[in-house]
Design a protein around this nucleic acid. Structure first.
Length: 339
DNA sequence: CCAGTATATAGTAAACGCCG
DNA sequence: CGGCGTTTACTATATACTGG
């Protein structure tokens, strides 16, 4: 069904409601990508086609001609709808993808193309030499309204303005401070001086975190690293690309944004020598021991720089699954520090 | 104890991506 | 195609380390 019927999103949603259909959405993991590559290669060999033939098949506008191809490829990934595979593969195989930074000449070319053609991104793509979605992103995120846009450090006033706007949109509506927000409109209400991504990152990583920590910036501690490693470990994923970062924090350990946690994970991962050639499992084995056996420097000189140490006990005893012998040692370490 | 240097972190920007 | 989210790269600054 998923692999054979082309359903758009609303049709899918309806099937979920009426038929109890289950399907997977969201970012494709590294494992799924590998499965897709294998399936495509198998198809190519079985039909004795060239890479070029495959590319033609992927990008042909004649949906009927590629029907068997898309069905077979889709069946190689679990619970993905054929429509999602179609879009994903076309992006992945796009000849103009991944060209890196835009140079000023390209920006000029894009401005000119938009002025001439309006927002016809496929046509613009041909003129500029970047994929249609790259052109659209570059335009809407960076070029449009660029004269208004500010970059660099935020002033106190800007931070207060953002806090006020977000508070109006969340707390004053009876919502959580870190609930979903339409960042496009926040950006608009900031007078376009800051873009949607600027506003979002500034809020989730900095201002919101600071408020949750009673007004002062929290510092990343060894305990946080410990919790992060063990949370990831408890997910039992095969690869870190399968982690849903939004689901990591819980009610007692929620001061760090998903974005921050991902970044922390990345640097932690890179700190392991030879991580590039390791499986996720091997990496976790190393990190589990590394983060469990390296206690924070005793009566840490670190704690002096920590303006306002938050209560560590609440955080620790909130992780019932993760205590065991390691958990209890973490409690001891941290309880002696603040107070 | 200090200066000089290596390393970690925070803040920012932007590429990359999925959904309806 | 417009909407928004996620992941990674870059860089300035803070912190740790080292030899003198």
């Amino acid at each position: 069904m998923l692999a054979n019927v082309w359903m758009n999103a609303s049709k899918l949603a309806e099937m979920v409601r009426t038929q109890g259909l289950v399907y997977k959405k969201g970012k494709f993991s590294a494992i799924e990508d590998a499965q897709l590559r294998t399936a495509i290669e198998n198809f190519r060999v079985a039909k004795s086609m060239t890479d070029n033939d495959i590319a033609n098949l992927i990008f042909t506008k004649d949906r009927g001609r590629g029907e068997a191809f898309w069905q077979e490829v889709t069946s190689s990934v679990h619970l993905r709808p054929i429509t999602a595979v179609y879009h994903h593969v076309r992006r992945l195989w796009h000849p103009m993808r991944g060209q890196g930074k835009w140079v000023p000449a390209e920006d000029d070319s894009l401005r000119e193309a938009v002025a001439y053609l309006g927002q016809q991104w496929e046509k613009i793509s041909e003129r500029v030499g970047r994929s249609a979605s790259d052109c659209r992103d570059r335009w809407r995120n960076h070029l449009e309204g660029q004269d208004l846009r500010k970059s660099g450090h935020w002033t106190k006033e800007e931070e207060e303005e953002l806090t006020r706007i977000v508070t109006e949109l969340t707390v004053l509506q009876g919502k959580e401070m870190d609930s979903e927000i339409f960042w496009g409109s926040v950006s608009h209400r900031m007078g376009g001086r800051r873009g949607r991504q600027q506003c979002r990152i500034k809020w989730t990583d900095s201002l919101c975190t600071q408020i949750k920590n009673e007004g002062s910036k929290p510092r990343w501690s060894q305990l946080d690293a410990y919790i992060l490693v063990h949370k990831i470990d408890s997910l039992k994923v095969n690869d870190d690309s399968e982690i849903d970062w939004k689901k990591l924090p819980d009610e007692h350990w929620n001061i760090w944004s998903a974005h921050t946690l991902q970044r922390r994970w990345l640097t932690m991962k890179r700190s392991v020598k030879g991580y590039e050639d390791m499986s996720h499992g091997e990496l976790m084995d190393i990190l589990r021991t590394k983060k469990a056996t390296t206690p924070p420097p005793q009566n840490a000189p670190r704690s002096r720089t920590q303006k306002q140490p938050r209560s560590a006990e609440t955080i620790v005893d909130s992780d019932p699954e993760e205590e065991e012998e390691l958990g209890s040692s973490a409690v001891q370490r941290t309880q002696s520090a603040p107070a």
